[in-house]
Every structure is written in structure tokens, then in C-alpha cells.
Design a binder for these strands. Structure first.
Length: 434
RNA sequence: GGCCCCAUCGUCUAGCGGUCUAGGACACUAGGUUCUCAUCCUAGAAACCUGGGUUCGAGUCCCAGUGGGGUCACCA
């Protein structure tokens, strides 16, 4: 049976790259009725952000990805599981102690030293590092890239496996955990590729069988470079706040690095799981382009029923807005918006008076608005006004639109008036007919 | 800089040696519907990084160059 895992570190907001990794891992397992494990990689206690563990779980549930097993690495670390493995490696001559001052790559830049000076010092305490052999080859078949990737071990560094605080680094923890948890397929970001030879060596030295491993493409920023957390809102929560539907976000990331053979684009999670296969993986890095996300979002907004939209709009409607009124507004705007947040820009004028720029009016606006006000007061048809007075239809309605909404872009104006009510509409027109 | 990965329209991609005058989607342009904007419909413009091979034949295979990305912490 296929068992995959999603192994985020709780160091902040979950980003769409992480969500995509989770999605593909989920689909990989579920396509074959396998199991999907959630493992929190929190072995660097200093970097943990309060509440992010919980938020990750909420988001996975919101997107419909329930897990079949849940582990927290710090719990396992306290049981001494990783320490034991590291010590066994020292015992077997595959690792060594080092009590030197840790370096900090951020400040010191990249290092060229692959061999640690302590590797033959036979120290008895400190961190434990892997003693990488020279002149050997390590490799694996990447199931995403669909190719063999190999390294010469002389290009692989003596990597720290156990920190001096007794907690493992990622490199030890993943190997031990994926083995202990019977993970059959490891799917992770491409940024992990360079440390894969270390993991391969650890598998070998520990006597473990290695799982299938695949490295996903990185999502690129339109500006170039890896999608960064600073540019734009790429966190899942950020997208949700901007008014994107979970279905849309999910469908969007499905196709960022994977594609079906039949050019299909619209998938629910269930449909995606069914269609998913490892052959559809893309090998080159995709660019995050929001316009496509906008399109997906529009599609899903239009697919939703009005009651469903009423629920979805809740965080985006003006404060104190009457639910009955909102209900009437929905059918008017659902074809016209890209995000839920567009509710306010498209229909805000129905809930509050907008300022009107008088220069927007056409030259006949006074007579247009006077005749319109008369008709509305008498509850007669506005189209009749246009015909009887030989007004230009577009000009007439545009003046009306500006007077009522303060904008040249609104839902159909007669429908808007119906929602606004006779009294409020006339009050708005009055300002420009005197 | 060392190591590793990648390379089809602006973007996401289909293509797995001949059916490619390279297909779809987003975006874009034009037209239709329309009280604006959208939705919807129709049409259009738009790509195989370069150079060598292999082959009767290459977008598809191989090599090099170039370009892009990643990584080089007791962070994940």
C-alpha cells in the first residue's frame, strides 16, 4: 500500500507551494487508496511560530485533505529515537562527534569545506555529523523527474545529523521517520534535491531500504526567482483573505506542475485524485500567475448556488448589511466579479452612498435624471422614458448609474434601483436635479 | 564559484521519431449579444533557446553552449 506524508515545519503561514506538495502527496496516496500522513517537523524549537501547527491542520481540512496519521517530531525527539539512531551511526563508524562552534551560512556565506576537521578527532560529545566516504557514488531514481540522479560522494559534505541540544536535523529526522512510518513515496520540494545524497547515505548506513523519492518543481515568482513570501500574497491565508475560494486555489495549484493528457482543466479534489498519476508531473518550474487564478475563481463563483455564495461572502460584505438585501444582490454580481472581495467594489453603493464626481456626467444629465426621477416616483418603466423622450439609451442609463452609484461600472441599473428602493434612489437623484 | 535540476505561445501546458501547416487554457486583439461592466458566442495574433550530431526523417534521441532555478547552517 502506498503511504505518503506531508511534513511541514510550523514556522509560519502555510504557502501555496506547501499546499501543493500536500495536495500531490495526498493524491498520490489516495489515487491508490493508500494512506496520507501528516508529520510536523518542529525539531528547531527556536523557529516555531505559535499557532501555525493548528492552522496547518485547519487549512488541510478546509481544502478536504484529511490525514490518516499524525506525528510531531519534537515528541519523538524527546523519546530519544533520533539520538539513538545517531549514536548507532557513530558506533558503526559512519558518524562522529564535533563540538566546534556552529557556522551560520547567512552571515558567513557558502562554505567550500566538505570534510569536517573533527571527523578523525574521536571526540566524545557535541553534535553528531555524518562521515561521508570518498570515491563512492550515490543515486536514486526520481519519480517526478523520471530519471536517475547520482552524486560522487566527494562532492557531499559531512552534514550534521544530531544537534548538540540532542534534537535531530532534518537530514536525520526525515530518514528515521520515513522509515519508521513506512512511507513508501517521499514527495518534497526541489530545494531538497541537493541534500538527497546525504539522506541516501544515511539510509544505507542505518541499513534501511530507501523509499521512492520525487522532487517537485519550485513555483516561481513572475518577477523571477523562487516565489517569495515577501512578494505578493502567496500564503494560503492571504489568498483566502483576498477573496479566493478554496476550490479555486486548489484547482489552480493542481495544474502548476502537473497536467492530464486530455487537456482538462476543471477538477474537484475528488476528480483530481481519480485522474492523478505520476506521469503528469512537469519537470520545469512554473510561474505563479494570478490571472489564471482569477479565472478559476470566477468559474467557481459562478458554479456556486446563491445560498452557497451568501455563506462565502460573509467575511466580505459591508458591516451591518441586511442579509435579505445581500441575497438579492448576489445574482446581480456573480457574473461580474473575480474575487469575493469584489463584492464591495461592485455592490458597495447599494449599502452606502458613494461620492459622485459630477464631471463624469454627460451633457444631458439634468434632463435624464429629472425624467428618470419622475418615472421612478410614478413606478413606471424606465425604457418608456427613453423611448418617449428619444434619449440615447446608453447615455441615459449612464447618467443614472453615475448619480446612483458614483461609478461607470455597476450591475444593471434597473435591478439596482429595485434593490435600493424608490425612496433611497430618489434621494440620490435629487442632489443632481435641483 | 562547486554540485544538482530544468528549457514548446507573455503564462500554465499537450506532444513521448513521421499524423506538427505544433493542440488546449489564461491573458491579449477584433466582432456579436447588451443600459455600463461582466457573463456568453465567434474570429484572430502568439511558441518548439542556439549550435553540433544520430536518423531516410527530430519539438520529440545524444552532446556542447547559453539561459533559468535550486543548494552549499548544529534552518527546515
Amino acid at each position: 500500500m502506498i503511504r505518503t506524508r506531508f511534513a511541514p515545519s510550523p514556522t509560519g503561514a502555510l504557502h501555496i507551494g506547501g499546499l501543493r506538495t500536500a495536495l500531490y502527496s495526498f493524491a498520490l496516496a489516495k489515487h491508490d487508496k493508500g494512506e496520507f500522513i501528516l508529520r510536523i517537523e518542529d525539531t528547531d524549537i527556536k523557529r516555531e511560530v505559535e499557532g501555525s501547527k493548528e492552522r496547518i491542520k485547519e487549512i488541510l481540512k478546509l481544502f478536504g485533505m484529511d490525514w490518516d496519521g499524525y506525528f510531531v517530531q519534537s515528541d519523538r525527539a524527546r523519546e530519544g529515537i533520533y539520538k539513538k539512531a545517531a549514536e548507532a551511526l557513530v558506533e558503526a563508524g559512519h558518524a562522529f562527534y564535533c563540538d566546534c562552534k556552529p557556522r551560520n551560512a547567512k552571515e558567513e556565506g557558502y562554505s567550500k569545506e566538505l570534510r569536517d576537521p573533527c571527523r578523525d578527532a574521536k571526540k566524545k560529545e557535541g553534535a553528531i555529523k555524518l562521515m561521508v566516504p570518498d570515491g563512492e557514488h550515490v543515486g536514486f531514481r526520481d519519480f517526478v523527474l523520471d530519471k536517475e540522479v547520482t552524486w560522487e560522494t566527494s562532492t557531499v559534505a559531512d552534514t550534521t545529523l544530531l544537534k548538540s541540544d540532542g534534537f535531530p536535523t532534518y537530514h536525520l529526522a526525515v530518514v528515521v521517520d520515513d522509515h519508521d512510518m513506512d512511507i513508501t513515496h517521499v514527495l518534497r520540494g526541489h530545494d531538497w534535491m541537493p541534500s538527497t545524497p546525504v539522506h541516501l547515505l544515511v539510509y544505507k548506513c542505518l541499513g534501511y531500504e530507501k523509499p521512492e523519492i520525487g522532487h517537485l518543481t519550485d513555483i516561481l515568482d513572475p518577477e523571477g526567482g523562487k516565489l517569495s513570501k515577501r512578494k505578493g500574497s502567496t500564503s494560503v491565508d492571504g489568498l483566502l483573505k483576498e477573496g479566493y475560494l478554496p476550490e479555486a486555489v486548489l484547482n489552480f495549484i493542481m495544474l502548476l506542475g502537473w497536467a492530464p493528457k486530455d487537456n482538462r482543466e476543471l477538477f474537484s479534489l475528488e476528480e483530481f485524485v481519480k485522474a492523478f498519476d505520476h506521469k503528469g508531473f512537469q519537470k520545469s518550474n512554473p510561474v505563479f500567475n494570478k490571472e489564471k487564478l482569477d479565472w478559476f475563481n470566477g468559474e467557481y463563483i459562478r458554479q456556486k448556488s446563491d445560498p452557497e455564495l451568501l455563506e462565502a461572502f460573509k467575511p466580505f460584505i459591508p458591516e451591518g448589511a441586511d442579509a435579505e438585501k445581500v441575497k438579492k444582490v448576489i445574482p446581480l454580481i456573480k457574473d461580474r466579479i473575480k474575487t469575493l472581495a469584489d463584492f464591495k467594489t461592485m455592490a458597495g453603493f447599494l449599502f452606502e452612498v458613494k461620492t459622485v464626481d459630477p464631471t463624469q456626467f454627460g451633457e444631458n444629465h439634468k434632463i435624464h435624471l429629472q425624467k428618470a426621477a419622475q418615472a421612478i416616483a410614478g413606478s413606471s418603466d424606465l425604457m418608456k422614458v427613453v423611448e418617449e423622450n428619444k434619449f440615447k439609451t446608453g447615455d441615459f442609463f449612464m447618467d443614472l448609474r453615475i448619480a446612483i452609484a458614483g461609478s461607470r461600472v455597476t450591475p444593471p441599473i434597473t435591478d439596482s434601483i429595485a434593490i435600493l428602493g424608490k425612496e433611497e434612489t430618489l434621494a440620490r437623484l435629487k442632489k443632481f436635479t435641483d
